[in-house]
C-alpha cells in the first residue's frame, strides 16, 4: 500500500493518484482531482535510505553472482582441460582424433561431453560479459583458465625458487615443461572449439535485450537524455 499524501489545499487523500514527471523539472507532480491544486510528491528520507540500501544489495548480489559464475565456469574449463589428458592422449601424446579413431563409445561420449561443455561454458561467460564487447567474455575465460592451469606451476615454482636461493632440497612435484606444453595444447584445442559458444551468446543477448521491459527502459533513458540536453 502506498504511503499517505494529502492535498495541502483541500486535504484530499492523494496516495492512490499516480505522480507524473513534470516535463520541465522532472519532478513527480500530483494534481488534486477535487481542487486541482498541484503538489510535489516527495520521498520520505528513510525510504531513500532503504532504496539505496536495496540498490547496493542488488549490485553486490549481482556482482557476487556474476563473479561466482565466471570463476566457476573458468574452473570447470580448467577441469575439462585437465581431464582431457585422459581422453585425448592415452599414451602421453596429444591426439584430438583419438576418441573418434578408436571408435570407443565411452570415449566418444566423453569427447562430446568435454567439447560440448567447453562450448556451453564459453556461452555462459560471454553472456555474463555481454555488456561489454563480444569477445570480452572469451578473453576473461582465457585469462582465468590460464591462471588456473598454471597456478600449480607458479606456486611450486616459487617454492623451488626459494629452495634454490636458500640452498635446501624441496621434494614437491613441479609440473615439467613438456607437461605444461601438453596442457597448453589441450587448452588451445578446447578454446578453439568453445568459440562456437559465442554465437548463441550473441543471439540470446539480443533476445534478452529486446524484452518489452528493457525496450521501455531504453526508450525512457533516451528521452531523459534528450530532455537533459534540451535543458
Amino acid at each position: 500500500m502506498p504511503r499517505s499524501h494529502t492535498c495541502p489545499s483541500c486535504l484530499k487523500e492523494l496516495a492512490k493518484i499516480r505522480a507524473i514527471p513534470d516535463p520541465q523539472y522532472a519532478l513527480p507532480i500530483v494534481v488534486c482531482p477535487r481542487c486541482e491544486h498541484t503538489s510535489v510528491r516527495t520521498r520520505h528520507p528513510d525510504i531513500q535510505y532503504w532504496r539505496e540500501f536495496r540498490r547496493l544489495h542488488g549490485s553486490l548480489r549481482s556482482l557476487l553472482l556474476r563473479l561466482a559464475l565466471i570463476v566457476g565456469s573458468s574452473l570447470l574449463f580448467w577441469m575439462l582441460v585437465m581431464v582431457s589428458d585422459e581422453l585425448f592422449s592415452p599414451g602421453g601424446r596429444f591426439d584430438p582424433v583419438y576418441p573418434i579413431a578408436i571408435g570407443d563409445v565411452d570415449y566418444l561420449i566423453g569427447g562430446v561431453s568435454v567439447l560440448g561443455g567447453s562450448v556451453f561454458l564459453m556461452m555462459v561467460v560471454s553472456m555474463l560479459m555481454s555488456h561489454r564487447r563480444v569477445f570480452f567474455g572469451a578473453l576473461v575465460l582465457i585469462v582465468l583458465s590460464l591462471f588456473f592451469i598454471t597456478i600449480d606451476f607458479m606456486t611450486t615454482g616459487a617454492m623451488h625458487l626459494i629452495a634454490t636461493i636458500a640452498d635446501f632440497d624441496f621434494g614437491v612435484h613441479m609440473p615439467s615443461g613438456s607437461e605444461m606444453i601438453d596442457r597448453f595444447q589441450r587448452f588451445g584445442y578446447l578454446l578453439s572449439v568453445s568459440m562456437i559458444g559465442i554465437i548463441p551468446a550473441i543471439v540470446l543477448r539480443n533476445t534478452i535485450n529486446d524484452t518489452p521491459r528493457r525496450r521501455f527502459r531504453r526508450v525512457l533513458r533516451r528521452k531523459r537524455k534528450q530532455r537533459g540536453s534540451n535543458d
Binding site: 540498490r55 547496493l56 549490485s59 556482482l63 563473479l67
Partner: peptide, 15 residues
C-alpha cells in the same frame, strides 16, 4: 577493475 569488468554501468552506480 573487477566491478568495471563484471557489472554493467547501471549496476555500478550503488558501488
Amino acid at each position: 577493475v573487477v566491478v568495471t569488468l563484471a557489472l554493467p554501468p547501471r549496476s555500478r552506480v550503488p558501488l
